[in-house]
Design a protein around this nucleic acid. Structure first.
Lengths: 187, 187
DNA sequence: ACCTGAACACCGTTCAAGT
DNA sequence: ACCTGAACACCGTTCAAGT
C-alpha cells in the first residue's frame, strides 16, 4: 500500500470514529469523507461498504473495552471487578452514540462483530465465574448476562429520561444479582 | 372526510402497524402502501410524513399498554402490580420491533410521543408510590425509573444474545429494587 | 496504485394530472 | 375531495477518467 493511501485510511478511521461517536450510525458517508478531507469514492476504495468501516471502528472500541476488562482480572474483590467491568461498558455507551446503538437492538443490524463479542463474553464469563464461586452473585449468572447488564443499565437510564442516572440502574442490577434466599426452604 | 378516504386511512394504519411490528422503523413507506393496496402518494395525503404515521401507530400501542397498567391499579400486592406492569411493557417490545426500537435509544429519534410517555409515567408513578409506601422497594424508585425498567429488561436480555431470557433480567431488576439494608448503621 | 466526482439505485416527499 | 404515479432530493455505491 502506498504511504499516502495508508495515511488516508488512518485519517478515515479516525474521522469515522469521531463522526460515529457524535452522530451515530446514520451519519452520512459524505460527512465522514468531508471530515477526513477526501472524496466520497475514497471511502469505498478502503472499505467495501459503510458497514465495513463502521465495523472497523466499533471493533476497535470493543477491543479497548476488552483490554480494560482484562486489567480487572487482577481486582481481588470479584463483585467489584464485575461492577467495574459493567460500568466501563456503560460509560462507553454514554460517550459513543454508535456503540450505544450497536449495544442496543442495533446489534442485529451490524453483523461482523461476532468475534469481538465472543472475546468480551469470555472475559465476562471469567469475572462471572469468580463472583459465582465467591457466592457474591446468583449461581445462574453467565458471561453473556454480564454483557447484557451493560446495555440494560444504560438503556434503562436512557429510557427513564435521564442517561446520567445509569449508576442507579447499575446499582439496582448489581443488588439484584445477589444470591436469592431459598424461599422454598422450611421456615 | 369521504367514506373511501376514511377506509383507506384505517387500512393504512393497520398495514403500518403490521409492517412496523415485523420490520421495524426502517420499513419503506412503499411497503406499507403496497400492503394497504394504495399508491405511495396516498400515505402522504393522510399523514404529513412517515414519522407522523409511525407516531400514530406507536401511540396506539402505548395507549393499550397504559390501559393494561390502569387495570393493575386494582392488584392488591404492590410489588406484583409493579412487576406485571413492567412485564407487559417487555412483552410488547418482544412482540413489536418498532416499539422495541422506540423504547430503546430511538425515543429521541421519534418525537411527538411525549404526551403518551407522560401518561405512562404517571401511572407508573402511582404503582411505584404504592410499592414505596409498602416498603416493598427502595424509597428512591420513581415512575420514570419503572418505565426505564421495561427497556432495561428487554434490551439487557437481547444484548445477552437471547431475548427470551427477559424474565431473568426482570427478576434481577425487581430483586434489586428491594430496600437496601442500612450498611452504614453500626453492626 | 490511488483519487476524484459524475452517475446510478433507493427511498421519503411533492405535485400535476386524472377520477 | 381524493387517488395516482411521475418527478425530485438525499444518500450509499459504482466506475470511467484523471494523476
Amino acid at each position: 500500500m502506498r504511504s499516502d493511501a495508508a495515511r488516508n485510511r488512518e485519517t478515515l478511521v479516525r474521522a469515522a470514529g469521531d463522526a460515529l461517536a457524535e452522530s451515530g450510525l446514520d451519519v452520512p458517508v459524505a460527512a465522514i469523507a468531508d471530515r477526513a478531507g477526501v472524496a466520497k469514492g475514497t471511502v469505498f476504495r478502503h472499505f467495501a461498504s459503510k458497514d465495513e468501516l463502521v465495523v472497523t471502528v466499533v471493533a476497535g472500541l470493543i477491543d479497548d473495552l476488552a483490554s480494560r476488562a482484562e486489567a480487572l482480572l487482577s481486582e481481588p474483590d470479584p463483585l467489584v471487578a464485575l461492577r467495574d467491568f459493567v460500568a466501563a461498558g456503560v460509560e462507553l455507551q454514554a460517550r459513543d452514540l454508535a456503540f450505544c446503538q450497536v449495544a442496543a437492538t442495533a446489534e442485529q443490524q451490524v453483523p461482523g462483530l461476532g468475534d469481538r463479542r465472543e472475546r468480551l463474553e469470555q472475559i465476562a464469563e471469567v469475572l462471572a465465574g469468580r463472583a459465582r464461586e465467591a457466592r457474591a452473585v446468583r449461581d445462574d449468572v453467565t458471561g453473556r448476562d454480564v454483557v447484557g447488564l451493560m446495555t440494560a443499565a444504560y438503556q434503562g437510564a436512557s429510557a427513564a429520561g435521564d442517561p446520567s442516572r445509569w449508576p442507579w440502574f447499575l446499582s439496582v442490577l448489581v443488588d439484584g444479582l445477589r444470591p436469592r434466599p431459598h424461599r422454598d426452604a422450611p421456615r
